[in-house]
């Protein structure tokens, strides 16, 4: 049985086709686009909020997209335990919508940064990461100007204590250092899970690193985790 992936499309989304391509053609699952004006997700098993610049990043990244009609159903779906992956702008939208804690601020460098980064796997038991080993380092690209994850110290402590940090930016030895942090994110955090473990937001783009022809395949482990988790469920 195929997993039905729904990829939300906002005006300004630009990684929607990448997410569709990976789930549909690389992993052979069912995938469909869902326009943001829809009010119902339909019978999807998994929701992807893709990268891009929804609403031109007006006001704040993700701030306006959060009020698109489809987001009400995404919140309902997530609160009912449905699996949701937000990549880059998708992560920003998940934070703005309250499905994930914290916020994504402007990069400390003030520059849009587009390059490969190394990520250390901090949680290898979630439905998004169970094909990875704890501490496993993967190479995935980032492309953002506002990826500087911020949350209050108590929230950061809770995220770390509860295993809700999925990935941190690291160096080749797996160390979390200032030099390995591309945007100034608190504690080097690149991706977080919600309390229930069914929502993941991450700034790096695994969908751009899931095929040998693209020169990187580490991101495929996130999609293989998802497929394995949902097929077994």
């Amino acid at each position: 049985m195929s997993i039905r992936f729904g990829v939300i499309v906002f005006p300004g989304s630009n990684c929607d086709h990448d997410a569709y391509h990976v789930t549909k053609h690389v992993f052979g699952q069912d995938a469909r686009f869902i326009w943001h004006k829809e009010s119902d997700l339909g019978d999807v098993d998994f929701v992807i909020i893709p990268g891009g610049f929804s609403y031109g990043d007006y006001l704040r990244s993700g701030a306006i997209a959060r009020f698109s009609p489809i987001m009400k159903d995404v919140v309902r779906f997530a609160n009912a335990g449905g699996a949701v992956l937000g990549i880059c702008n998708g992560f920003q939208i998940l934070c703005e919508s309250g499905l994930l804690p914290g916020a994504l601020m402007r990069n400390e460098s003030l520059r849009f940064t587009c390059k490969d980064v190394l990520l250390r796997t901090e949680n290898s038991s979630s439905l998004f990461t169970n094909d990875l080993a704890l501490g496993e380092i993967i190479r995935v690209p980032i492309a953002h100007g506002e990826g500087n994850f911020f949350a209050s110290e108590p929230v950061l402590d809770r995220l770390e204590g509860e295993g809700q940090v999925a990935f941190k930016y690291c160096d080749a030895a797996g160390a979390i250092t200032a030099a390995s942090n591309p945007n100034g994110a608190s504690r080097g955090i690149a991706g977080i899970l919600n309390e229930g473990g069914n929502v993941l937001g991450m700034m790096p783009h695994p969908e751009r690193a899931s095929e040998a022809i693209l020169g990187r395949t580490d991101g495929a482990k996130i999609f293989s985790s998802i497929v394995k988790s949902l097929v077994e469920a």
Binding site: L59, R60, A63, F67, C95, P101, A103, M105
Partner: peptide, 8 residues
Amino acid sequence: DLLANSVM
């Protein structure tokens, strides 16, 4: 509701 994000 919208204009400011109270987290930051």
